[in-house]
Design a protein around this nucleic acid. Sequence first.
DNA 1: CGCTAACCATATATTTTAAATATGGAATTG
DNA 2: CAATTCCATATTTAAAATATATGGTTAGCG
Lengths: 302, 302
Amino acid sequence: MELRHLRYFIAIAEEQNFTRAAERLGIQQPPLSQQIRQLEQELGTSLFRRLTRKVELTEAGASFLADARAILEQVERAKSSVQRFSRGEAGRIRIGFAGATYFQPEVTALIRDYRARYPGVQLLPEQSNTALLVEGLRSGEIDLAFVRPPIGGADGLNTQLLVEEDMLVALPAAHRLSRQAALPLSALAEETFILFPRAISPGLYDNLISAFHQAGFSPRLGQEAPQIASIVPMIDAGFGISLVPRSVSQIRTEGVRYVPITAPVPAAPIGIAYRQDQHSVALAHFVALAREKRQHGPARQT
Amino acid sequence: MELRHLRYFIAIAEEQNFTRAAERLGIQQPPLSQQIRQLEQELGTSLFRRLTRKVELTEAGASFLADARAILEQVERAKSSVQRFSRGEAGRIRIGFAGATYFQPEVTALIRDYRARYPGVQLLPEQSNTALLVEGLRSGEIDLAFVRPPIGGADGLNTQLLVEEDMLVALPAAHRLSRQAALPLSALAEETFILFPRAISPGLYDNLISAFHQAGFSPRLGQEAPQIASIVPMIDAGFGISLVPRSVSQIRTEGVRYVPITAPVPAAPIGIAYRQDQHSVALAHFVALAREKRQHGPARQT
DNA sequence: CGCTAACCATATATTTTAAATATGGAATTG
DNA sequence: CAATTCCATATTTAAAATATATGGTTAGCG
């Protein structure tokens, strides 16, 4: 059985007439008769009762008509579905967010815009840290990650800068410097710093350390925070001070103040990373949209 | 697109290899490549990524694989469905019951047995009278009717006798004859009779009248009953007496007694009727079963 | 590093299949 | 009863699927 048989069968059922159905199908009547005979043979039953003036469906034929129509409809649905996928209008993207990137307005705006433009694509968010995300990308567990570049050993991965976020000093409200309008890093030489483990975001970590060195000191390190976001409550608890990406300052706590840094300001860039050999059209659209937003600058109005 | 394309596509997706898929399909590899190219062309997207050692589905291909499998399954379901219809294992029979035939044990047994043997066939019962049922058969509103033969103008209809039911005298409990073990019809010459309108079952009506004439009298007719079953309450209400098919005596009422008639006993046969040009296999099975039961007699053990 | 093997694509020949043409037969219909 | 309608059959032709032969690319391996 082929779809042709179904198309022919439906035409005859609708016309109640082989000759007219053949015209409608753009073929001659004899091959139509022959195809139907084939079909009836395969099904083991006759589908039409041939009367002198017209043909009519048998009971079996009537049952088959409904099924045949349903099958052709399903074929059409499958066609348009596959095309939606190939155009990137349908699909699935598993997205990982490294620590504190999901606070960033640019990041949430990108997600929001993408969803608005491609509502058929399912986005599956997941939180982790940069190191684990890079691993997830490699293993294929996730398709895209918001990370803090640079990411080590990025062979096989593409990275694209999304935001050049700057950092702020985060310190207890009671701290002697907490009322300053801005601070040079050198003013913090004697402080105890709360940092996250280098392993979870080596790029950002090294950024910090080299900023300290440029300011002329090596930071005294206190207790380590398990992740970037948990630095804030630890400052509140009195473990020390820290530098955090500006978007972290959205975590407003009574006991913590954020103070801008005078130039040179250490950067906390955010980028997206994905496998080079990734062929998802949906993902390509996502990356394209990110590049577009990046070019139009952070103050674009979509 | 033809089903062939789907079969081929699925085989390749499963084997991840054109050559092996071709073997499995019993064709050579080049025509397989060609058919897939056709399919990809029609869909406007590639379904496989050709790697050096194997092929793998694109996203669009993965979506299409699920659909293709569903389509082939639906085709198989349609096939077996049409075959069930052609074997009479599926279908629909609209059945009409003439007045008081649905009391008859043979009738209910037939229905029960048929349902047990062909559970896939939907039976749609409907109550009416013989005259309306004959009309319903002609117009195609019903497929089969339990009637009281003979039915007038049965051209185009087949009738088959099912039960040779006899009749009983039905009279008020207070009637002077109500305690008799049996009665000859002639004993009822002076009574007032409640009959149904001749139009709703002419055969049965004429049967009755000629039985009266054979017994040597013309019955005095009282109030007419709207249908056979409503004769019983009218007797109870004192309108007169009547003769009713034995199965009507299942309607037990305090005020009504049923007394057998001494030979010759008037008959109240029940038959099934259906269009001669009816082609339903399910219906043919029903008729065959009825004939079978008729031959094995009323005391058969199915 | 070159050789082999794996594997799909392409080109061409062949076979199969669908479609076209011609015609016949059955059954209304006027 | 002739004309018409309409499907089936037989036969030819065209198209399409499949087979055969071969080439190109890449991974794997001595």
